[in-house]
Design a protein around this nucleic acid. Sequence first.
DNA 1: GAGGCGTGGCA
DNA 2: TTGCCAAGCCT
Length: 373
Amino acid sequence: MKNHDIQHLSKIDSISFRNDLISWFEKEQRDLPWRKDQDPYKVWVSEIMLQQTRVETVIPYFNRFIDWFPTLEEFAEADEERILKAWEGLGYYSRVRNLHSAVKEVQETYNGVVPDTPAEISKLKGVGPYTAGAILSIAYGKAEPAVDGNVMRVLSRILLIKEDIAKPKTRKIFEDAIRELIDPAKPSFFNQALMELGALICTPGVPACLLCPVREHCFAFQEGVQAELPVKNQTRKSRDVQLVAAIITNEKDEFLIHKRAAKGLLANLWEFPNFEIHTQLLPKRSFFQEQFEADFGVKPSVGEFIAKIDHVFSHLVWNVDTFSGKLAPLIDKDVMESSKLRWVSEKEMEDYAFPVSHQKMFAAYKSGTKRLL
DNA sequence: GAGGCGTGGCA
DNA sequence: TTGCCAAGCCT
């Protein structure tokens, strides 16, 4: 660490800072389901769910997840369809596949006990620097930094750190600061308090400094520049993708669904057959039929237009022209298997994990069906 | 290091 | 409406 990176660090009374911060946390912390105990498995699950995801969104998912998989061992033995279903709608689905892989690793290598050293825990899939520090401090009481976006925002203000927090190497500056400031007696509360402060008081935009328990320690507040921090220079441009999809049924009122590839966007989730449109040469119905026949060897009939579904991802936007369609269930059984196609009843669809984009498509289909009755 | 990887809430 | 954000990690 270069000292000039954190010139205000040495001016902080770390004992007083810790006490003010932790006293506030002990009084004001939210009653959250993952704070009921310090089971390393539950702490781990909650930390993975909370990555880039709001607390209010996570709460019901966490409760259901622990209901379905109360212990690390039970989650390790779950099948992939079930774990994806548990994550359906949460986003960033590789999180749950990595968690599953890591939990199985803990079962096999560590006899079912989540490791408590930085070196071991960091080797687990999906456990990066933040999650490692969070589990080690919250579940095991180790004085390790857990630097997330909240911590960088809060500390950038308190210590007047103007490094760009969008740059990966900047995290180390904050980890070094935390190692100086962390309460060795209460590392769990210290780390959680910093994040709680970021969530409740030291928010992005205009923070509630008048309610802040540590504003006397805050150099940004002293200089009135809290709204200018943190510095974050990253704009990720998203790209538009045109798709044509069809909700295809057979004479038994079953739906044709397809399992997505094991890598990439929405990996291993199920979907209604769809294709990306690169050029606009053919009418969309014809394009869909040709692509479908090329991939699966039979040609469906494509019926009425259902809806144009717009769905925004973090890095791209889907624009999906959705049609209804009909197909006799005559696709060869081996082709169905190798093409990862399946006919399922509406009831059976409940057991499959679909991305939100396809839930929107199905909702539009259902409302269209209802209109026809 | 930069970009892939979801979703919903909010100004 | 549009863009930005919210307890990151992987490649």
